[in-house]
Amino acid sequence: MRDTVIPNNVPYAISRYSAEELKEALKKMYLIRKFEEGAEDSYMRGLIHGTMHLSIGQEASAVGSCMSLSDEDKITSTHRGHGHCVAKGADLSRMFAEFFGKESGYCKGRGGSMHIADPSKGNLGANGIVGGGLPIAVGAALSAKRLGTGAVTICFFGDGANNEGAFHEALNMAKVWNLPVVFVCENNKYGMSTSTERSTAVKNIADRAVAYAMPGVTVDGNDFSAVTEAVDAAVERARNGEGPSLVENVTYRWRGHSKSDRNRYRTKEEIAEWQSRDPIAAMAKLLVDHKIATEDEVAGIEADATRIIEEAIAFATEGDNPKIEEVTRDVYTEETAS
């Protein structure tokens, strides 16, 4: 991290982070994109079962939000959580192994796409219940405050979750107890098929912060630097004991909600318009324009990501399936209960 005053006209992220940190961020964005594409391809080829929720198009939100976090800081994630997992430093091979349902996966094949977690890196897990992670994140922040760890929790949730009761209860309690938590809403415009216009009474979800007397800001979630600037400020407030904030990253998922989605609720033109605002292309351009990386280096970073994903898929393919006789293992911590 650079400790200098931000010059005029230089995007926040360029001033705030070192070249190495920025190139690592770009790499993570490529890893997310290629993880999702690999997952989709594996599904198409019948290598995996179940469903998945892909975050292609949302990479800047996941990576940008986690920039100032350490492994001690926590995140809670969502059903569309692969990107958060990568952003928080997960191992791609173990992620893919979980996706393939293997014993070598993060959840030993018990969780799958919707429950990938890595507590050793502070990732408390994705969640299959919309809004399920909101109160849990507040609990993690309560632990940090009470135990004096100095850790901050980022709670990722979608625009759909902002209409759950859990959203209201969690944000209210976080403010009442002044806890170190940042609520990051990834507003990708649709809760499954229902648009925010049809589901949400306010124009911007961040407007709801007023009801909880906390700062709220809406940013272009496809602009890495804008995301980083907003979330870093919120993380710093939380770390300084100034309580919770709400940041809304406006973004878009290029793919459908899940594999059953036929995209009947949105137009091809709308999807194409958002694809022209690719957050990864924008990030690469940012690094090249500011001479953080050359175009060759960017190509090298992408090639690295491709190789890592290929290795991860190979690792996952070779992994052992869990043993059926161990199916009830880990229901309880001690195997005495039934």
């Binding site: 507040v138 609990g139 309560l142 632990s143 209860e169 969690a170 309690m173």
Partner: peptide
């Protein structure tokens, strides 16, 4: 000894999250 708001879902969830992280 924390009085919670009348928020059973949120309160239970905060307890779950706190239990996962050391309390």
């Amino acid at each position: 000894v924390m009085d919670t708001p009348i928020s059973e879902l949120g309160g239970a969830g905060v307890a779950v999250g706190a239990a996962m992280t050391g309390l």
